[in-house]
Structure formats: C-alpha cells, structure tokens
Amino acid sequence: MAAVTSVSFSAIAQSSSDRRAPFCTAARNFGFEGFRFRSSFSCHYVGVRASNSTSRMVIHCMSTSTDVPPTVAETKLNFLKAYKRPIPSIYNTVLQELIVQQHLMKYKKTYRYDPVFGLGFVTVYDQLMEGYPSDEDREAIFQAYIKALEEDPEKYIIDAKTLEEWARTQTPSSLVDFSSRDGEIEGILKDIAERAASGNFSYSRFFAVGLFRLLELSNTSEPTVLEKLCSALNIDKRSVDRDLDVYRGLLSKLVQARELLKEYVDREKKKQEERAESQKANETVAKCLGEPQFVGH
C-alpha cells in the first residue's frame, strides 16, 4: 500500500535595495517606482513501504518562477567591477543615484527600451559629466554604467546620434506631424504612440528629457509644440512638464557643484605649489649649510 503526501508553498521574492547616500532633492525625485517579483514552488513526497519493512522515499520537486532580476546591490557591484578607478564625489554621488533609479525602472514588467529614452539618458549623462577631467574616463564610465544594467551602450550612442540628426532637419510642424509620414524615426514615434494608447508604454523621466532634446534640436521654442507632440504620442504633458522641471533643477545644482569643485581644486593646486616652493627653499638652505666653507688667508 502506498502513502502519498503532497506539500506546496509559495514565496514572494522582493528585490533588495541598499541604503542610498544622501543627495539633493532634485536627484532623488529623478526616480521610479519599486517592483516585486513572485516565485512559486511545489514539492511532492511519495513514500513506498515494501513487505521486507524497508522503506524508501522518492521526492519529486517542481519549480515554476519568473526570471529573478539582479538586485540593486548586484547592479552597483557590476558597475564597480567594470570601472575600478576612483570617481570624484560630485560625479559619483549622482551616478550612484541614477543607476539605482534606472535599475528599478528597467526591471519593471512594463519596461521596454526605445530610442527617445536612449537619447534622454545620453543627454542627462553628457550634462552630468560635462567638465569631467578625462574624456577617455568619461567614455569608460558610460560603458560600465550601461553594461551594469545588462544593456548595450553602443545602441544608446547610435540611437541618440540618429535621433539628433533627424531632429535637426525638422520644423515644429513636421515634428508634431510624424504620424502622417514614413521613415525610420517616424516609425519609432508611431510605435510609441500606439503602445501609449494601449497602456503598454512605460513612461520615464529619461523619455521626457529625450522629447525636450528633440524640441531643442529642431529649434522649437513655442510651448504649444510640446503640448501637441505629447498629444500625438498619447503622453501626459503634465508628467513631462514636471519631470523637465526636475531635470532643470538638477542641472542647476550640478553647475553650482562644479563651481565649488573648481574652487576647491584651484585652492589645493595653490597649496601644493606653495608647499613645493617651501620644500625647494628648505632644500636649498640645507644644501648651503652642508657645504664646507672656505675662508681666504
């Protein structure tokens, strides 16, 4: 006679988020909602007792679960592994904030990369890293950042360049009237509009910055054009306005921080020069005192 026992359980796995370093309100507001993933497991235990009083248990386990994303800590660690050199705190603080926020946004179920989003991120990154001491390091940091999020940095660069070139050839009217024309970028914008209309579009603040950049490159300054473009894309203009205000505030704070950093670097450079001159003078005096003195008879 066989006895069958079945045990099942479910567990909720939530991505952990590590403690954030303090930063300005504008940077914190440039964030995204959290998310949760659910996994379920079931195990069936089958016990069979034979006539010779020996027993044997066979365990059949089955697991069905969604793909478990990396944690925020793992994404940050991947970035640090990819770029091992120290980053000045003014840049590193904002980068750490952005990578946390972009991690949370990317692993939402509704996330899907699009070139306007890519343009927005590249724009934010370029503004953030403006004035970085080394162009080579700035590029290396960009590569490490995007790869830590398991995405392709070259795609971001190519898409941003393609959209920028396209926007420079547009007028306010042609920019808004994309749905009536054929073309690569027009097709991308149509796809965004269709997904937004059906509720399958994941709006983000990088997307808002991408829209702003398109308007900027097409020499569009009339506020009504942004309203019309948002309407054509089925995007809430109030969200775009709010996020652009946050973006402008962040840029303003970065400018102030860069000025303070420059003053600090200049002061330290001056101190080093003064110390070097003082050391040189001391060495000269010591050399003179150490030389034998000859007195003529």
Rank of each mutant, 00 (worst) to 15 (best):
M1I: 10
A3L: 14
V4G: 06
S6I: 15
V7W: 03
A11R: 08
I12P: 04
S17C: 07
R20L: 10
P22K: 06
F23A: 11
T25D: 11
A26Y: 12
A26I: 03
R28W: 08
F30S: 02
F30Q: 03
E33S: 15
E33W: 08
F37I: 11
R38T: 12
R38A: 12
S39G: 12
S42N: 13
S42E: 13
C43P: 02
H44Y: 10
H44A: 13
V46K: 08
V46H: 09
V46Y: 06
V48F: 09
A50F: 13
A50C: 07
S51F: 09
N52F: 03
S53T: 02
M57T: 14
M57S: 14
V58D: 14
V58Y: 13
H60N: 15
T64Y: 09
T64E: 14
D67V: 14
V68Q: 13
P70L: 13
P70H: 05
L77P: 00
N78I: 01
L80M: 12
L80F: 09
K81C: 07
P86F: 00
P88W: 00
P88T: 00
T93G: 04
I99A: 02
Q102C: 08
H103L: 01
H103G: 01
M105R: 11
Y107I: 07
K109N: 08
Y113L: 07
D114V: 02
P115I: 08
V116L: 07
F117L: 14
F121A: 06
Y125D: 06
Q127A: 09
Q127D: 12
Q127W: 02
R138T: 04
I146E: 00
I146Y: 01
K147L: 11
L149H: 01
E150R: 15
E151W: 06
D152Y: 06
E154I: 03
E154K: 09
K155L: 15
I158Y: 11
K161I: 10
L163C: 01
E165W: 07
Q170L: 01
Q170E: 10
P172S: 02
P172M: 05
F178I: 06
S179F: 07
S180P: 03
E184F: 07
K190Y: 04
A193R: 02
A193N: 03
E194V: 12
S198T: 05
G199C: 09
N200W: 07
Y203H: 10
Y203L: 06
R205P: 00
R205S: 09
A208P: 00
A208Q: 00
V209E: 03
L211P: 05
L215S: 03
L215D: 01
E216P: 01
L217V: 00
N219S: 15
S221T: 14
E222T: 07
E222A: 15
P223M: 05
T224W: 06
L226C: 04
E227V: 14
S231D: 10
K237I: 15
K237C: 06
D243N: 06
L244G: 02
L251P: 03
S252R: 10
L260K: 15
L260P: 02
L260T: 10
L261S: 13
L261W: 14
Y264E: 15
V265A: 08
V265F: 09
R267S: 12
R267N: 12
K269C: 06
E273F: 05
R275N: 04
R275P: 00
A276P: 02
E277I: 09
A281V: 06
A281K: 15
N282D: 11
A286I: 01
K287L: 13
L289T: 08
L289A: 11
Q293T: 10
V295H: 05
G296D: 09
